[in-house]
């Protein structure tokens, strides 16, 4: 599996567009800046919804109506983040795919997506009973806490990707090498 990921990454790395993006100072920085600044639209709004569910913010705003109205701008934000994230990966595919932090981030993104789906389903099933309460029911509050915590760790992992602490090109413990998917004889980053 790691060999397959590595081979695909090398193939992506050899494409002209990948080289064009990572060798262009302005294009790469514009993409990365868009990725980070879109946090305000995606994560910022998601956290507002989570804080409302926990009763820590906007207690007088009807909860499910808030979540429904903010869904569209939040999704637009996440789509922009997703596209720019793919472009950032495409610009540096080999190093990214062998990054421990990138892999943790991807796993947590999947967990957050599942959590968001379950959260939305539970919210629509129960909305009529607590719409104007300052706090959501316990199951939804747990979902909001998971969302807050995991998205914070995702941002943290995103920051850690920039550092080379666990890069495969340096000697690493076996566990790190296994989790990062380091390939023996790997010479290109």
């Amino acid at each position: 599996m790691n060999q397959l990921i590595f081979d695909i990454s090398v193939w992506l790395d050899d494409t002209a567009w990948s080289t064009a993006i990572h060798e262009s100072y302005y294009l790469y920085n514009w993409i990365e800046s868009t990725h980070v600044i879109t946090l305000m639209l995606s994560l910022g709004i998601l956290f507002l919804i989570d804080l409302r569910m926990l009763g820590w913010a906007l207690p007088n705003v009807p909860a499910t109506r808030l979540a429904e109205r903010l869904n569209t701008p939040m999704l637009i934000g996440f789509i922009v983040m997703f596209i720019t994230g793919i472009l950032l990966f495409y610009a540096v595919p080999v190093r990214s795919s062998q990054s421990l932090w990138f892999r943790i981030k991807m796993v947590l993104l999947v967990v957050c997506a599942v959590n968001a789906y379950l959260f939305h389903r539970r919210m629509t099933q129960s909305m009529s009973t607590w719409e104007n309460e300052p706090r959501a029911p316990s199951t939804l509050r747990k979902g909001a806490m998971i969302s807050l915590a995991f998205w914070t760790v995702i941002v943290l992992c995103g920051r850690f990707i920039a550092y080379d602490w666990y890069d495969c090109e340096y000697p690493q413990p076996d566990l790190v090498r296994a989790l990062a998917g380091c390939i023996d004889g790997q010479i290109r980053f």
Binding site: L39, L41, G44, F47, L48, V155
Partner: peptide, 8 residues
Amino acid sequence: VSLGVLGG
């Protein structure tokens, strides 16, 4: 994260 919340 806090900048994201501020922006939100």
